[in-house]
Design a binder for these strands. Sequence first.
RNA 1: GCGCCCGUAGCUCAGCUGGAUAGAGCGUCUGACUACGAAUCAGAAGGCCGUAGGUUCGAAUCCUGCCGGGCGUACCA
Length: 655
Amino acid sequence: MQICYNGWLSMIQYKAKLKEQIRRVLMDKYPLQEAQLEISYTPHAKMGDLALPFPLQLAKKIKKQPRELAAEIVPLLSDLCGVDRIEVAGPGFINLFLNRRDFFLLQVNSLHKPTFQPEEKKTIIEHTNINPNKAAHVGHLRNAVLGDTLGRCLKYKGENVEIQNYIDDTGIQVVDVTFGFMDMEHKTLKDIQMIEEKFDYYCWDLYTRVSSHLEEHPEAQSRKSEILRKIEEGEPPEAKIAEFISRRILKAHLETMKRIDVRYDVLPCESSILGRKFWDEAFSLLKEKGAVYFVDKGINKDCWVMKLDDDEEREKIIVRSDGTVTYVGKDIAYQLWKFGLLQKDFYYEPFTEENGRILWISTAEPKPETASFGDGSLVYNVIDTRQSYLQKIVVQGLRSLGFQDQADKSIHFSYEMVALSPKSLEELGQKISSEDKERNFLEVSGRKGLGVKADDLLDRLEQKAYLEVEKRNQDLPSEQRRLIARQIATGALRYFMLKFTRNSIIVFDFEEALSFEGETGPYLQYSLVRINSIFRKLKERENFTEKDLQTLGIDEDIPLDTLSEQEQEDFWELVIYASQFEEEIQHSVRSLEFSHIAKFAFNLCQKFNAYYHKYQVLAERDKSTKSIRIWTIQFVREVLSNVLCLMGIPQPMRM
RNA sequence: GCGCCCGUAGCUCAGCUGGAUAGAGCGUCUGACUACGAAUCAGAAGGCCGUAGGUUCGAAUCCUGCCGGGCGUACCA
């Protein structure tokens, strides 16, 4: 067997090398397309490590028995680098047994080395986008966690990522709360500023009162229209009050998101889109191209509408009969700006600053300090699936303006809603009608005030985590315990939001969301804490440091065969699984399905915990066995730490 | 009506472009802590993968019909 790999190779690179060799050998003998040359994994380690399914497809093409064909190919592949053994398996797979020592070396050395290359000039992710008129709820948390995780993964890939949180500060929902303060509570701006209680919670309640008030008083519509117009045109006092509300709520939202370690680069505001006349520019473009047209009769009389590509019958209203623009209209302008397709940019000013990192907010007027955003080449909009229709219209808008590429690179990252079980509603003290009781779940409704507030949930998680930490870590100062409780709460919440596929409706259940056992974030954190504990004790007892790790002799010789047969298997199962982490990231990014990463991390921890129970590190007397075990857990530690980082799950040193 | 999505173990969910014996967690039952932390581990029980057809060497996965459920189809977002 020749030695053909040196240094380091991640699994992705390793497979690429294998494919290259296989192609070279088989190219002129079989009609083999590259696409078929996938390398997958075997269901069981006994069957080998990597599997080549291509004989199954090839057999069909050249009319042979799959197993026969595979048997015929096997001898041709006898010289694959790093492969100890190769055999036909099952219906006609070719399975490869890797040289474990060589492979492990390559993997360990490939940590912290780049496998990916950036593909985009700039990737923009828009997420969170909570209406700034009430407190954030669990549904918003799902959005933020998904968007934030996507951002982390793309950055890991090396992409230039810009995170935007769009603020609908001139929309109907802000109008409603403004109406509530002014017309129902008869408060002045000053009165509102004086409110001391948690402002987003105050507005949450106010908003539900406004909603039911408006249902009973349809005549208030005209007053609402007046408020909307005044806000859009910047007329006091309505405009000032609305601005104060939206900014103060926005601050609350940012605080909530900070609790789970979600941050943004820029906050583009709808008010700036109007103020900078982005919409006017977009509107004239749309008119020019005939993408929108004016309706002079019928149900949509006096509106500017857009026709839907796949439904001739339907017209979507873009400009209302009173001349105001719908959200979709402004969204088209916003999307154009994201791709740098408008002639201008916003102005900006710092909104918050933390550790020297400035979060910018858009303005319509020039400010002394400024920055530049937008002009991306790829755009992800993280918005729940109920808005698919509207997202389609936005993309269609780009297309009808002739921006084909940008339309293709506008990606609606859609996900299902978070709903509430009747049980959790009861727990919230909500009255539910008997007909609703029959249903499996109920939609969260901001209007009805039906929902689990994000901060409430996080408070409960922290509280529970604190009690657990207190039980186990009496020696730690309480401040430390608080920090750890927060880390656990964040880990639990973020994992919970990622473990489901985006297509599945999360029927929120307190017991499930508050769990720290089984398939949860804290399980992952606990696994890492255990590994870190071993290293901490190695240091305490043997003065073993990171430096010693480097010189532990992994490069020289790893005498795997000194281990028991069983241990060799257990070692290998852990290692080969851990090596797949970058493939999982790739897979997740391509499919926008982060539950893959979540499951991977969980499975890895399960394998690790089993290994941990079986094999001692500290107490091991045989030096080389101990070294191998140290390197094994070190490898797992690195991989797990990476993966947790991508999911935004904090890594406490103790818990 | 039309469009999109879902139906897998008692419950909550995985199962990638069709592939080797359908997997987890929770719950239930049996075991394992004078500890590299039991927020853990080992084991057991539990499944005509909604239903009927089709495509093929092979279907939980692809196609069609049906049944059951959700969402969307606003001059709300």
